[in-house]
């Protein structure tokens, strides 16, 4: 299988990465060589094999329902690109 320029644009769009036609073309070539490499795993018969999502067979530890955090918004917002009235500012959100 190989990716088309439209595929490249679609995934760049999903990932919110601006890409122009020239870049899309270059990227297409690189991604296709990578997907050729990836394709080698597709011939493997994996029927009946349980997918492995985690390195260890353990289950989730649960945290007691208690409030442990304090207000640190001043420190957190000191590194923010745009803040006003303690709110993070972004270009207007349209619903």
């Amino acid at each position: 299988m190989s990716l088309s320029p439209d595929d490249v644009k679609r995934i760049a769009r999903l990932a919110r990465i601006e890409i122009d036609d020239v870049q899309a073309q270059a990227t297409q070539g690189q991604l296709n060589t990578i997907f050729d490499l990836i394709a080698t795993m597709q011939a493997v018969d994996t029927s009946g094999i349980a997918p492995m999502a985690h390195a260890q067979e353990v289950t989730q530890r649960l945290r007691a329902d208690i409030v442990t955090e304090t207000d640190r918004h001043a420190a957190f917002q000191a590194v923010a690109p745009a803040v006003e009235n303690d709110l993070y500012l972004v270009p207007k959100v349209i619903e």
Partner: peptide, 24 residues
């Protein structure tokens, strides 16, 4: 109706000043 958030120890109380209950 929990006291703290689902994945952090921040308070879930309604009506706090903006971003004062938003942890790391």
């Amino acid at each position: 109706a929990t006291k703290s958030k689902i994945f952090s120890g921040s308070s879930t109380a309604f009506g706090a000043a903006p971003n004062t209950q938003a942890s790391a």
